[in-house]
Simulated scan of single mutants.
Amino acid sequence: MTQPTFTPRVFSGIKPSGGLQLGNYLGAIKRFVGMQGTMETIYCVVDLHAITVWQDPKDLANGTREVAAGYLAAGLDPAKSILFNQSRVSGHAELGWIFNCVARVGWMNRMTQFKDKAGSNAEKVSLGLYAYPSLMAADILLYHATHVPVGEDQKQHVELTRDIAAKFNHDYGIDFFPLTEPVIDGPATRVMNLRDGTKKMSKSGDSDMERINMLDDADTIAKKFKKAKTDAEPLPETVEGLKTRPEARNLVDIYAALDDTTPEAVIAQYPGAGWGTFKPALADLAVAKLAPISQDMARFMADPAEIDRILAQGADKARAIAQPVLQRTYDIVGLLRG
């Protein structure tokens, strides 16, 4: 089938569990803000995904507001982008069920993130954790999104979204859902742990020194970078010299992402530099870029009613786009609605 022309539209979201950290900012939010104005942009706090594992209700509500505050503090403008939390738009869950009936069990069994999260305890995890990639597909396709900015570790889920769209279109003989493209570009699309460069930076790591929290103050940000694990060698003369040095590569990538440049340019600026030179420079840069965001986040978090108002207003806008897509989906499938 030849795909029809769809309105260029971005959709992406962040899960509100455990608090925002630098990986969320560099790998997602900073890129979301940069895409404003390039096409229609829809950004979400995916709270339904959070409950695939048990959440304390108060922590979940607070985490949802924290992610929204992070979006806003980083420069996401509700007048330019739609911002809402997923559970306010029931179409996500409704389309998610239809896609549960389109997706194949074999597809879900290939999802590496489920295997990583479930580990040896797969029989005891929630059905939601197993099936959530089809809900993620619904998140995207409910808005006929054509582009999804994601990290490399989420690329498989966008590929599954394309498979679900293609199967739905084939099964019903209609070109209705777009084949969404993942957008993976720039340095530090996957930010690594400050104590172990082979592991992804996580909100749930054992030590707070492993990560930069987006609500950390300037002193804490600087301290964490200065104490970040490195090897004994200075920076190399070329980027190729970082291939077998995960901690060094991670810090160079973070510098490049914060400075809107490339790892090659960073190495050219600091060829052969020792860590006593580079880490303080990185700390200064991080404080300059991140401390204003953490301050604005704290200001937004002090007014939860305003965050809720922005999310509700965004949900109204999202619903206006989603409802016709959902209604047409029901018509195509043959499900009767009033």
Rank of each mutant, 00 (worst) to 15 (best):
E66H: 14
E66N: 13
V67K: 13
V67R: 11
V67H: 15
A68Q: 04
A68E: 04
A68P: 04
A69L: 14
A69V: 15
A69F: 10
A69D: 12
G70V: 03
G70E: 07
Y71S: 10
Y71R: 06
L72P: 03
L72G: 09
L72E: 06
A73P: 05
A73K: 04
A74S: 07
A74L: 00
A74N: 02
A74Q: 01
A74P: 00
G75T: 01
G75N: 00
G75E: 01
D77F: 13
P78L: 15
P78W: 15
P78Y: 14
P78V: 12
A79N: 13
K80A: 09
S81G: 12
S81R: 07
S81K: 02
S81Q: 09
S81I: 13
I82M: 12
L83Q: 10
N85R: 10
N85G: 03
Q86E: 03
Q86H: 02
S87P: 00
S87G: 01
S87L: 02
S87R: 01
R88E: 08
R88V: 07
R88Y: 11
V89M: 01
V89Q: 01
V89E: 02
V89Y: 01
V89K: 02
S90Y: 03
S90E: 03
G91S: 05
H92G: 09
H92W: 02
H92V: 02
A93N: 09
A93K: 08
A93P: 05
A93I: 12
A93L: 11
E94H: 00
L95G: 06
